[in-house]
Lab assay of single mutants.
Amino acid sequence: NRLGIIYEIQGMKAVVLTSEGEFLIIRRRKDMKVGQQVSFENEDIYNV
C-alpha cells in the first residue's frame, strides 16, 4: 500500500500528494475528500 493526501478531485480521478513529494493521479473512490489521507495500490495509479 502507498499513502497520499488528496489534493484535488476531477471526475473519476483524484490527484494525491505522496510523502515523497510526488503528485499522482489515482482512481477515485466515492468516500474520498480533499485533504484526506488515503492508501492506494500501484494498480490504482493512472499512467500519464
Rank of each mutant, 00 (worst) to 15 (best):
T18G: 03
I6D: 00
V48F: 06
V15H: 06
Y46W: 08
L17A: 03
L3I: 13
A14H: 01
I5P: 00
N42C: 11
Y46P: 05
E8I: 10
Q37A: 10
V48C: 15
N47V: 13
R29M: 06
L17K: 06
D44E: 07
E43L: 03
R29K: 13
E41I: 11
Q10F: 15
N42E: 14
A14D: 00
R2D: 02
I45Q: 04
R29I: 06
Y46E: 07
R29S: 06
V16W: 00
L24F: 12
I9F: 15
S39W: 08
V38L: 07
T18H: 01
L3G: 10
S19P: 08
E22F: 13
I45P: 03
I25N: 05
E8L: 13
R29P: 04
K30W: 14
S39L: 08
E20F: 09
Q37W: 12
E20W: 05
S19M: 14
R27T: 06
T18D: 03
V15F: 13
M32F: 11
Q36Y: 10
A14M: 10
E41T: 13
G11H: 07
L24I: 08
N1I: 15
F23Q: 05
D31Y: 15
E41F: 10
R29E: 07
K30R: 14
G21M: 05
F40C: 02
M12S: 14
R28V: 14
I5L: 09
S19Y: 10
I26N: 00
N42I: 12
D44K: 02
G4N: 02
N47A: 06
I26K: 00
M32D: 06
I9M: 12
S39I: 07
E41H: 10
Y46L: 15
M12R: 13
I45A: 06
R29Q: 05
V34G: 02
G11N: 10
V16K: 00
F40R: 01
V38M: 04
D31M: 14
G4F: 03
V16N: 00
L24W: 09
I6E: 00
G4L: 02
Y7F: 07
V16S: 00
E20G: 08
V34F: 04
G21R: 04
G21K: 07
L3M: 12
E8H: 14
R29H: 10
F23C: 10
G35Y: 07
S19A: 10
I25R: 08
I5A: 04
T18C: 05
K30C: 15
S19L: 11
D44G: 02
I25D: 03
K30D: 13
S39Q: 09
F40I: 06
R27N: 08
T18V: 06
V15R: 13
L3C: 06
E20Q: 10
I5T: 07
I45N: 03
A14S: 04
E22C: 15
F40G: 01
V38G: 01
N42Y: 10
V16R: 00
V38R: 02
F23W: 15
N1C: 14
V15I: 11
D31R: 12
R2M: 09
L24C: 06
M12K: 11
G4E: 01
E8D: 09
E41Y: 09
T18F: 03
E22N: 10
I25K: 07
T18S: 08
D31T: 15
L24T: 06
N1Q: 11
L24A: 06
E43F: 02
V34L: 13
K13T: 08
I26Y: 00
